[in-house]
Amino acid sequence: MMGLDATRVRAVIRKELTDYRRKRSIVVTMIVMPLLFLVEPIVAIFVAPPTEPPPAMDKFVVLPLLYMLLIAVIMPSTLAAYTVVGEREQGTLEPTLTTPLSEQEFILGKSAAVLIPSVALCYAVYGVFLLAVEASAKRAVAAAVFHDRPTLLALFVFAPLVAGWAVVVGLAVSVRATEVRVAQQLGTLASLPMIVVIILLISGVIHPTFVAAAEYAVGILVADLLMLRIVARMFNRERLVTGAKATR
């Protein structure tokens, strides 16, 4: 594995974040999409009957919380899919590849530039949700929400992990795709496994214990880092610049 220069990685992150801020469609999408995902959990919390006993109350509390985990998967996938192939279409990729920036630094910078705002927005949305519950939900329901510390913890721990998965698979697709539209569709498709798992959790098919959840978290972390390394290996300057398969 090649050496990593923090200056170059930071330069990539800074440039990407500046670029995102200046594109209105990205800003609007990143704000509106999470808010749309907030609707169902808030409605569920506010219609939950306050007289249910604690075990039954869980299903009115845990499921909406887990539903918000989908934000962390869906939001970054489109951005990540655009990162490499989008630059290629713009014509900005080749000048960047002529600099000392290594493949690992490029991938790491691009990943971080998508992951950081995605995770920050997820946490912001969770914070908004909790504030709304605290301020306006029925006392019993609010108590049940804040009492469910394992699920809250899972939200905050799993958000960056599943977002990381969405980012690296989106990047992998972007490195190989020839068109932005194709990359974005494939990127969303590649996030499907994670979405399926979350849906299975929400629907109660999977009942993870604390130990199982911890193992799952470690597993996702390992998968994310492995995938990051695989993407760095997939990154081929010749293919990206010429569109031809690298030959020697």
Binding site: V12, Q90, P95, T96
Partner: peptide
């Protein structure tokens, strides 16, 4: 080395100075 391709490939949403600052960062 430094290479200027036929098309300069600038980031259009960034200013001139921001483009150069980015590449200065890439050169460390």
């Amino acid at each position: 080395i430094a290479i200027m391709p036929e098309s300069p490939g600038l980031y259009l949403r960034l200013s001139v100075a921001e483009n150069l600052k980015y590449f200065a960062g890439l050169y460390g």
